[in-house]
Design a protein around this nucleic acid. Structure first.
Lengths: 188, 188
DNA sequence: GATTGACTATTTTGTTCATTTAGTCATTTC
DNA sequence: GAAATGACTAAATGAACAAAATAGTCAATC
């Protein structure tokens, strides 16, 4: 039985359910059916355990997005597919939501750090895709970094902020809005 | 001498300097050279005094935006001018900065309420402009509320969030980006 | 009748002390 | 003897209480 994996799974479960701060190492040990000391043979401390989980999450997200990417399709279409994948992914992963909330309303430093890391990873991924879309002439010339930033902010605004005062938007609506605002433009 | 006005001015000064929570009614009374009881002959309580100040601020913001509106220019040029005026206003005004900070890092309920009220006022203003732009056929048919929301979020992201990790964008750059993303679209 | 500031009830803040928790390490287990 | 463990410690957190500050009142004053 892979003890390290057991620990990671237990910690992921607890972080997803209760957040970073409210997860104790005793709890993780108990959940993993492992002595607390064992955790410290694999991870230097709580934050490093957390970091490993997040790094894995980032890798999983990237490969989920990548697997939905089809170079024979248009950039536009690929953004749709990647968006759908990430949206599905997000629903499955309680963890991201929990952490986003904890970062915002408690400002737990370890969580803030990790969210920044995630944001940077996502921005770099989008940026890379934007660069190749410009190269292949699929979209207009634009600043890739700024464009990635705008796309992510729009996404976050639609997913998290809009829900605060309105009915949540479903996958199709979000994809449609992206198309309307970012790709086609409002001008007649 | 208009005692009510003196109170409002003193309170505005103190809110701007110290924020809502750190402003005491004793302080306001002293600053206004007025007995504390006098404040309560004009305002039911601290929050109502605060509300009156903010309502005035919102009115001032609206008229600042309105004054920058030029019907001979295109819709998107006007939207940009109006939004920029509002955000510039917000930045210049010590009070809004202080309140923005207090809302974000202390979450003072009265401040949060008021910030929401401000955001709603801005959103309604944009929405109204979007509605008439759709009617006059200047932009495509779209959900005015969602469009106002997206525009405001994009502006805030470009003006406040982008600066956290990059060189600030100037007025012209922001205007161009807004046109590029929202109005023209990225598609070729 | 308007104004006031001493007064009160409530909230906020500071402090102490008990509990919880991250991380260690001597002991146990296989 | 290497890996695993959980009782242990130092540090962080939070509960409980006391003290201070503050919003709002109201009888006295102008």
């Amino acid at each position: 039985m892979d003890r390290k994996q057991l620990i990671i799974e237990a910690a992921t479960k607890s972080f997803s359910l209760f957040g970073y701060k409210a997860t104790t190492m005793d709890q993780v040990a108990k959940l993993a059916n492992v002595g607390k000391g064992t955790i410290y043979t694999f991870f230097k401390n709580k934050e490093e355990l957390f970091d490993e989980i997040i790094s894995t999450l980032i890798k999983e997200m990237k490969s989920a997005a990548e697997s939905s990417f089809d170079p024979s399709l248009s950039f536009h279409e690929n953004v749709h597919r990647a968006l759908f994948k990430i949206l599905e992914f997000r629903r499955k992963h309680q963890l991201t939501i929990k952490l986003y909330e904890e970062g915002k309303e408690m400002g737990t430093p370890a969580v803030m750090d990790v969210m920044e890391k995630m944001e940077t990873a996502i921005l770099n991924y989008i940026k890379e895709k934007v660069v190749s879309a410009i190269e292949t002439g699929q979209i207009k010339k634009c600043d890739p970094e700024l464009t990635a930033f705008v796309m992510l902010k729009l996404y976050i605004a639609l997913i998290f902020d809009w829900e605060k005062k309105h009915e949540p938007l479903d996958k199709e609506e979000i994809a449609e809005l992206f198309e309307q605002y970012i790709f086609k433009g409002l001008s007649n």
